[in-house]
Design a binder for these strands. Sequence first.
DNA 1: TTGTATTAACGCATTATTACGATGTACGGG
DNA 2: CCCGTACATCGTAATAATGCGTTAATACAA
Lengths: 111, 111
Amino acid sequence: MGITKTEIFSEKQNELAVTFKALGHPARIAILQHIIKQQSCICNDLVQELGLAQPTISQHLRELKNIGIIKGTIEGTSVCYCIDEEMWQSIKDELNAFFSQDASVCAGKCC
Amino acid sequence: MGITKTEIFSEKQNELAVTFKALGHPARIAILQHIIKQQSCICNDLVQELGLAQPTISQHLRELKNIGIIKGTIEGTSVCYCIDEEMWQSIKDELNAFFSQDASVCAGKCC
DNA sequence: TTGTATTAACGCATTATTACGATGTACGGG
DNA sequence: CCCGTACATCGTAATAATGCGTTAATACAA
């Protein structure tokens, strides 16, 4: 997208944006939901479940791993992915904090 | 970003992803925080505050308007942007619902 | 009417993202 | 050891996003 000027924003703002961006793709939402639904670490029947090619899934998994929300452990010939519970909670808290800012003060004053 | 295959995902998943993606840029995070901090609808001293050119800010504002999280009303020669409180709450609830999925069942089983 | 200020729209160059085929690596079965 | 399975990585085409210069469009002031 052309280069993003991260240097003019605060570390917090960039962090938040990176997290949001990582979640900003339906395939990655689907992957997370699927991993949770299966209740156990799922390898790549994700390729079977979602209609995407294996390299594409692998790429999305890597992006999710980048923000730490999932982790993968080698399980023989396949790889086992699961939610990093600690990180999941941490991200949940962070987003919650963001949305807990009082957005009501403006309302009614003008718009 | 290359085409995203939205047709193979559910409407909910696509909606969530679009919301996350819209928030996935530090400038847009900064804009929201600034609007909230000022407690009143701020026009484009955003251009002064953030170090980005006016057309760039305008573009980010449009993307935020696209997901409905802010609204803009004409105020004489300038435009007044503020949080759409209802939408803000709605998005907050939606993200909360997503993160309220029980992610703990997997943990301990394997990874 | 003629500026002036504030935004939006358009278009361009640059960089990122998505998706996938081809290729490489690692493991286990035979 | 060889082969098939399961993934990751590389390379590439297509497309989307950033950022900004330039150009309208609109409202207000003089």
